[in-house]
Amino acid sequence: MEKIWVLAEQSRGEPSSTALELLAAAGGHASVVEAVSWGEGVAQAAQVLGEHGASKVYDCRGLGSSLPGPRVGAAIASLVEAGGGPDCIFVGQTYDGRDVAGRVSARLDVPLLTNVVGLSSGDEGLVSEHAAFGGSKVVRARFTGAKPEVFVVRAKTFTAAATGGSAAEVVPVELPDTGATDGAKVVGRHEEEQEGPKLDEADVVVSGGRGLGAAENYALVEELAKLLKGAPGASRAIVDAGWVPYSHQVGQTGKTVKPSLYIACGISGATQHMVGMKGAKNIIAVNKDESAPIFSIADLGIVGDVHKVLPKLIDAIRARS
């Protein structure tokens, strides 16, 4: 394949880990890999993007108060329409990545394959892998002719790797008029104070589920996560119940995590949850129901009450430091 573009999110000149993972994957399938990025700091990000295999970065620059979806989507569509577009576009399955992919798809009339958890080269181009039925099945799919092929890939699917390249050439992109589609404006940004690592980058994830019994007991999960220098996660059940925000959700409809250690507290193990965490190297589950499906994938399963086990565990770990 000749060319793949990677939608590379960056913040203050630092590319997202998913962007670097996608660059590594793209390098395995195409001779030319280029990035598309936006926001302040793309020129700075070009160094690291180049080191990870991007020869060029198309710079949509600062978007002011606009959301990325319509503006970056339109920019990509017009670059493709102008010729010289790629065979494939890799997009991270993120809040903004999904918005951009959806806009590109509708503008260019090309289909999407989303929730990609693997890619391989077949006789007729790329074949994507998807987890179905809670990860019990692997579905492989491909496009049948529409170009460019847009794959929306979940975080942690690939491993980032430096290629030894130099800084990517920065190519400024004129943003086309997006009319009414660009009507939404950000009027305030709130960054919640975040201690410790991000959920999908953490080496240790401690998650809580319905078995915690009440929203206030989630504090036990946060405490244990903090002690282990990890990130707190959640099952869909307690996100749906409004105990914790969606950003904490691990699973099919949330984040995929692949930490060294995953501790599931009061999580029964609905298939929709397990698909998001069964790639963890080690899994510990604490649940009072011995028939909970989570035990079928746990390296260490504790049949017990989280309200008793967790406080003792927290005390024991605390006593060591």
Binding site: G135, K137, V138, R142, T144, A298, G301, G304
Partner: peptide, 29 residues
Amino acid sequence: RQEVVSVEDAAARQSGEIVVDEGDAHERV
């Protein structure tokens, strides 16, 4: 304009040790 190429069973993950808590399970953890 896309098609499923195959559907296969995913590699199963083995379960490990299951311990019933009798007040000291945290030590196992």
